[in-house]
Design a protein around this nucleic acid. Structure first.
Length: 271
DNA sequence: CAGCGCCCCTGCCCGC
DNA sequence: TGCGGGCAGGGGCGCT
């Protein structure tokens, strides 16, 4: 479910409720997520405070003085702030209770998400070592995309979804950014000009920022940390619109599969 | 290394 | 109305 804007929305929603209050209890109801939720996390974080929160790629990082809780929402995960003793629902897998009365609870029906712990610097962790640049920083530039893509045969859509290149661009926003840039998703990344990468880079930033402002995209049941849905769905121009007329030229939007993921685009506007 | 497919899992939607 | 098939916002991993 969540791409960068949804993860960012979640982080913003939960942070103020969990910062600087001792963790009183950790409950692991089902440890079989993407990787087993390490039991040691309980002894490591109980009585600790979260002193800062941040996002790296689609990972949420909750820092304590002893290390970092790493949370990934996978395809169907959501984190909510709940009052104490809220009855568990199906797929509520992990919960952190705080002295201030708040509970932070992970629900994840498909269990592709993760809750991990590291006592080390985050950049040393294997999951983070090979991550590319953050798209909403000045390090993410057209020059970077251009240079990394030389001699690459992969389709541009898969190239911008490659987390070794740039992080946080998932299927929805890859589709939207390519449409906004007028680039055919099948075009080889290595054959795209610097000028077109300027456009693409600009559009990726614009769309991600706009989606964050709208609280993310709610497709099925995504809610930010405070339970509000996202409103970016109404801005989607191609994703989920196979067979509908292109908003620019009225040509019928086409759907193809790239790397087991659906791509929707306009064969007239994108080339 | 690049470039692929596969797979983890549940829920929902569609067509018959 | 019931059921099987296919698809879903991610991404690590193993193979060629």
């Amino acid at each position: 479910m969540p791409e960068l804007p949804e993860v960012e929305t979640t982080l913003r929603g939960i942070s103020e409720h969990i910062l600087n209050s001792p963790i009183t209890k950790v409950t692991i109801r089902n440890s079989s997520l993407r990787w087993p939720v390490p039991k040691e996390i309980i002894e490591h974080v109980t009585h600790q405070k979260i002193i800062s929160t941040q996002r790296r790629a689609k990972y949420l990082l909750l820092k304590t003085p002893k290390g970092t809780i790493i949370i990934h929402l996978g395809m169907s995960g959501s984190l909510r702030i709940l009052p104490p003793q809220t009855p568990y629902e199906k797929h509520d897998h992990v919960e952190f209770c705080f002295a201030n009365g708040n509970a932070l609870r992970l629900k994840d029906p498909r269990r592709f998400g993760a809750v991990l712990w590291t006592g080390d610097a985050i950049h040393k962790h294997p999951l983070f070592r090979h991550l590319g640049v953050e798209p909403l920083t000045e390090d993410f530039t057209a020059d970077l995309l251009y240079n990394l893509s030389r001699n690459r045969k992969v389709a541009i859509k898969q190239f911008i979804m490659d987390s070794k290149v740039v992080v946080g661009v998932g299927n929805i926003y890859a589709n939207e950014a390519l449409f906004a840039s007028g680039i055919n998703p099948k075009r080889a990344a290595g054959k795209i000009s610097l000028q077109r990468y300027v456009k693409l880079c600009t559009q990726i930033k614009r769309i991600l920022k706009l989606a964050i402002l709208q609280g993310g995209t709610t497709l099925k049941d995504f809610v930010g940390g405070t339970g509000k849905p996202g409103y970016f769905k109404q801005e989607l121009l191609v994703y989920g619109r196979k067979g509908e007329p292109c908003s620019v030229c009225q040509n019928t939007l086409k759907e193809i599969r790239q790397g087991q993921r659906s791509t929707v685009y306009c064969t007239h506007c994108q080339n």
